[in-house]
Design a protein around this nucleic acid. Sequence first.
RNA 1: GGAACGGUGGCAGAGCGGCCUAAUGCACUUGUCUUGAAAACAAGAGACCUUACGGGGUCCGGGGGUUCAAAUCCCUCCCGUUCCGCCA
Length: 437
Amino acid sequence: MIDVRQLREHADEICAALARRGDSSCDSQVEEVLELDRRLREITAERDEARARINELSREVGQLRRDGNVEQAEAVQAQSRALGDDVSRIERDHEVLSAKMHELLLHIPNVPHRDVPDGASEDDNPVVNGPFLPEGGIDGFAEHQRVPHWEIGELLGILDNERATKIAASMFTMQRGAGATLARALCQYALDSNADEFEEIRPPSLVSTATLTSTGQLPKFADDAYAIERDDLWCIPTAEVPLTSMYSGEILDAADLPMRFMAFSPCFRREAGSAGRDTRGMLRSHEFDKVEILALAAAEQAPQLLIDMVARVERMISSLGLHHRVIEICTGDLGQSHHRSFDIEVYAPGCGQWLEVSSVSWFSDYQARRADIRHRQVDADGKPMKGTVLVHTLNGSALAVPRVWAAILETHRQADGSVNIPEVLSPYMRGISRLGG
RNA sequence: GGAACGGUGGCAGAGCGGCCUAAUGCACUUGUCUUGAAAACAAGAGACCUUACGGGGUCCGGGGGUUCAAAUCCCUCCCGUUCCGCCA
């Protein structure tokens, strides 16, 4: 959610920034919000005035009754009752207007950071680091690496999506044997690698409607999430959702910032808009495992944290012997809640494509305003100051299992058809260092 | 799922229709005293909205109701504790 007060004072700048996203409907939405805001403040003043008068009169009634002056008390009561009717009428209007305004605000996207490159679509996302490829670039991969992971998985008996489909539905996956061990090893490894700075959390996988609204999935993207209507709960699409809301409605101490969390969780996605895309293998599925990293920070800490978190993901990918590049998300491709975003992509030689394995994003105070997460401010001497400010949120996937799993199979496939497990995973592989062969 | 009891400021906890502008204690901040600290004493202190910056309004789990007036009474939902039932 963007700030109404900011909007009031800097409407032109905000509209201009939103226009960079290429969505022209923002202007009219902003205008409508401002109009509602004007009316709302008008009637709020009216209501408060009436309420102040009622408070005054009620005190008078109390005094009159104590004095035994019943007649006059009743006269004042009648006066107050009439004012009470005014107040309830105004309150009804107020409720309608503020609900309308809130609804509009929930649909207005975040303002892109000024350094976000202009662009219309994902085709305009620039590569900002890499690509880090073997000698010879994309053509430098050997012939035995050019087998898609779904074929490798089937040959080695470690991927059984056919049965996953039988048990559940299409677009569900199932790993077995060493394949399942590898998937779990990746999570263990990701958690251990980030434990130096991030507190491990094991959050609920189902959350309330309020929680899913805070992070921006609702109301706009309800079709993408699995709903458990009977209990008014939703399956999380990422651990970002519960982690961000851990401190919702709370006021944090500046000294505790930044707060850093990581969590392993299953992720559930209906993939409503992508039916028929990436249907083979592990590239896209309704349920997958992921380790997420997340930070709640003061505004001035955010830029450096963004850089740090991208670097962490890059180190992890490199340590697995995978080939990656970092792209920055341009204005036209930026998610609704995002202020600035970087994707880490891994090259999968078997299926011959760059796979998005992580997206690290800075949300400015957009999510924090929805979730109401604030912190106390301190002055230059570290003394607490009056008032509170919203925190900034950042998050990213430390490691999303399926695509990394796929890239490992394809990248580390040997000429004899076996697959070498990256050295860093050996503590988690029960002694398995090679699949097949 | 059933029953009982609860939910009040950072925490503990009183209040159970008007003097609540929420007692009291702890913690906190500032000052006095002190070489410094502690103790003692005094004062202060929250959040949110709005403002002609004088103020005004809101906040006692959420929502609704009764009343001139609700922390206080009624309804409803949520959460917690304890006991029972069920159960990894």
